[in-house]
């Protein structure tokens, strides 16, 4: 963003005073240069390097022995990768939907001019401020059958209470969903609350006069007018889902077995601990593809929207 602003600024001055370039004209460029260089090298440079490596048979160290799409073929034959992908589907889908639903609901409730709103808002938003590692660790204790919720319920007298998803390969992915939802839904709430606060109060009055109930007003008028917020929340949540690495690392460490791996954990394991840099790079590229598939339409519509205004 700063980058753009600086570019736009210098462009304008050039148009205004063509010939003389003073220090003032150069200053923004000089100031921005280190950041720009760092961004180009560290983000785009390494991205390209990863792309190149994904076409080689690099193992422990990068080599440039090109083997075409072999690594991608291996990747999609790899059972662990397929588990990670399907986990991503389940985790991503449930995480996004639950977060959106809870976030919208919390925002609507908070919007009813309740008392102590500031405090409640902070409480819900707080999880977003802590790292996924902390969330993962905390939920690991909570979900652990021998000393968490299950134990508490049994001690309360519900002898038959079972809650052992963390050690169940079929259910462990839902543990990830619970922890991630706990962390991110407050953030979605904040997004929507800001949106709701921006809704024209006269519009709500008009709906009331038109005879719409509160429920109908939200469903037919207010929420549809928050479409851009939905869109932003969707993009933010889905890239959180695709990038999720630390949560798995802290909460389940991929286990039991590799049943709760997500693509990022797969990538990390192969590139850095199992000496399969080529394969890791290929999986990274697939993840990049997923993120781009979400971001490009978003950026496209955002930029187009700006031009419309």
């Amino acid at each position: 963003m700063n980058n753009n602003a600086a570019k736009a600024g210098s462009g304008a001055t050039q148009a205004g005073r063509p010939a003389r370039l003073s220090l003032a004209d150069w200053m923004p460029k000089i100031v921005m240069a280190p950041t720009a260089v760092a961004a180009i090298v560290c983000i785009y440079g390494y991205m390209i390097w990863t792309a190149v490596l994904s076409f080689t048979n690099s193992r422990m160290l990068p080599t440039y022995n090109f083997v075409g799409l072999d690594q991608y073929e291996r990747l999609f034959m790899n059972d662990r990768w397929l588990v990670a992908l399907s986990n991503l589907g389940v985790f991503g889908g449930l995480f996004i939907l639950t977060c959106l639903f809870l976030g919208v609901m919390l925002a609507i409730f908070l919007d009813q001019k309740i008392r102590a709103e500031g405090a409640i808002r902070t409480i819900y938003l707080y999880p977003m401020a802590i790292s996924f590692i902390v969330t993962g660790t905390a939920w690991k204790w909570l979900l652990n059958p021998t000393n968490g919720i299950e134990k508490m319920m049994i001690e309360l007298g519900f002898e038959d209470f079972r809650f052992n998803w963390l050690s169940d390969p079929d259910m462990v992915v839902y543990c990830l969903v619970i922890a991630a939802v706990w962390q991110a839904s407050g953030f979605v709430m904040a997004l929507f609350l800001a949106g709701l606060r921006g809704v024209d109060s006269e519009m709500i009055k008009a709906a009331q006069l038109d005879g719409a109930s509160i429920f109908t007003t939200y469903r037919r008028i207010i929420l549809p007018s928050l479409k851009p917020v939905f869109f932003s929340a969707l993009v933010i949540l889905s890239h959180i889902a695709i990038k999720s690495f630390d949560l798995v690392a802290a909460l389940t460490n991929g286990g039991p077995g590799y049943s709760s791996d997500l693509p990022a954990n797969f990538m990390y394991a192969h590139a850095f601990t199992r000496s399969q840099i080529g394969l890791g790079a290929a999986s990274a590229m697939v993840m990049l593809g997923c993120v781009l598939a979400i971001l490009i339409p978003y950026l496209y519509s955002e930029l187009r929207g700006e031009r419309h205004e």
């Binding site: 006269e202 008009a206 038109d210 549809p224 007018s225």
Partner: peptide, 17 residues
């Protein structure tokens, strides 16, 4: 809704969607 009144607002308050 039971008063059978209609109102035109300064901001027009049309439903944007």
């Amino acid at each position: 809704k039971d008063r059978d009144i209609a109102m035109v607002f300064q901001s027009y308050a049309l439903y944007p969607n």
